[in-house]
Nucleic acid binder design. Structure first.
Lengths: 253, 253
DNA sequence: AATTTAGTTGAACGTTCGTTGAAATTCAAC
DNA sequence: GTTGAATTTCAACGAACGTTCAACTAAATT
């Protein structure tokens, strides 16, 4: 049940990739890569990795089918290239915003949870609703991958967990008494709420009788931040409340 | 880029399905159906609808490949049958629990949000962690489908939205001043957090350095309920505070 | 201008895809 | 035990799958 395509593979196809440094500088090659990436991004987002063939992608990109293998090695390499292309820009802004929030609260009291969450989510929702159309596909793809047992644990971790750790560390400062596990599970809930939003499945539209629209990401964002902020606080407050530690001795920073 | 399998289909294949009432009563046929459904459930959950072939499924079920078409019409019919098989039992208990929560608060004050959320989520998390192994696959499949642009809006709605509406109505009573859109978006966040949990991708395990385990659904549940309850309250409280409507005139219904 | 290199093309490979048709088997009713 | 329907088997269909190969064009280097 494993291998779908031909099995006649001996090497890996990778050995024929254009060398990273030398190639890709020509504008012709670069344009081809981008066309393929654009099409792959859009189609993978619609039907997932297995639901789209390499020929679907190169056909939509109007390039020869062999160019996918030439530029990205194989289908999985293409998927990872789609992931990587926008991840760098994304992580850079998220990281900078987190730094800014922490710097603004410097020395003084801990940062506000809402500000930390906003620093983490705003770059995403803003690009999805106001960026180029490719961004919307990109996030829809992330939504699908994040909930996939096969790819979720590896791809998401590889590309996004460094900045996620930075986010969790900022929350840790905002809620110094919070237990570690509560912190991570609360992030997990945020991640799930956020990625389902990106999927834009239209289910909420139907359910709400049209009152809510999946594509209205601004409405989502202004609710997601207070929702999750309250969730973070509730989890941490609960743990401080029940075992009832002396509260003067325990509340240390 | 659309049709993957053969295109020579004229009718629908459905016309050869065993008639619902007469067939399926024989224990031989019923056992075959269940074997196929079990295998499909497990494999679809692992790699999604397109990542698994009909031959993968019938091979794992150790039945002839033609039996999938015979019993379920086609591949999509098989997916829907997998969905349907456990949905009825699930919806029945969720609905009964919601009724119980509402009945317990009858006449008196509104029900507690935590109780409503628990009635909605407990039947799922309990079956996933303590039910037969098929249940875990079932929920992992739901996690993937819920975040799929292609299937999320239709399959989830078809099988689960009736009881979801009942859930939202119960929350509406718990938070009578809440605006409709806030209610639906808050449910959306709950749905995302819940379904990402079901995916059990292992990402949280890595991220937390082993402190959290994806498979520890009890830990998730005892955090999901207060997290989302606080989120619901925060959304509704926010709307009551800022625009300050007369609150007697606006509290509709 | 000649030669190397990067990029592209079109065709083909062996395999797997979803589905079907006809024949064979099993079962229930008589 | 025969009949008729329900179920299972086996083989095959044409299409689509991921990938590769050798030939070819365009660009860069000498």
């Amino acid at each position: 049940m494993q291998k779908k395509g031909t099995a006649g593979r001996t090497g890996a196809g990778r050995d024929r990739l254009p060398r990273a440094g030398t190639a890709g500088t020509g504008s012709r090659s670069q344009a081809t890569r981008e066309r393929i990436l654009d099409a792959a991004e859009r189609l993978f987002a619609q039907r997932g990795f297995y639901g789209i063939s390499v020929r679907d992608i190169t056909g939509a990109a109007e390039v020869d089918v062999a160019l996918a293998s030439y530029h990205f090695g194989n289908k999985q390499g293409l998927l990872e290239a789609v992931f990587m292309r926008r991840a760098e820009d994304l992580n850079a802004e998220r990281s900078a915003r987190l730094d800014a929030v922490l710097a603004a609260a410097k020395g003084r009291r801990p940062p506000k949870i809402e500000d930390v969450i906003d620093a983490f989510t705003h770059p995403l929702l803003d690009r999805s609703s106001r960026g180029s159309p490719g961004w919307k596909s990109y996030f829809a793809l992330i939504a699908e991958v994040n909930n996939s047992p096969e790819f979720g644990g590896v791809l998401m971790s590889r590309f996004f967990d460094p900045v996620v750790e930075k986010f969790i560390d900022a929350i840790r400062r905002a809620l110094p008494d919070c237990e570690e596990r509560d912190l991570y599970w609360a992030y997990h809930f945020l991640s799930g709420a956020l990625t389902l939003t990106f999927a834009e499945t239209g289910r909420i539209d139907k359910l709400s009788g049209g009152a809510c629209r999946s594509s209205d990401l601004d409405s989502v964002h202004e609710r997601l931040v207070p929702y999750c902020a309250a969730g973070f606080r509730a989890l941490c407050a609960a743990k401080r409340a029940t075992p009832r530690p002396s509260r003067t001795a325990k509340s240390r920073k």
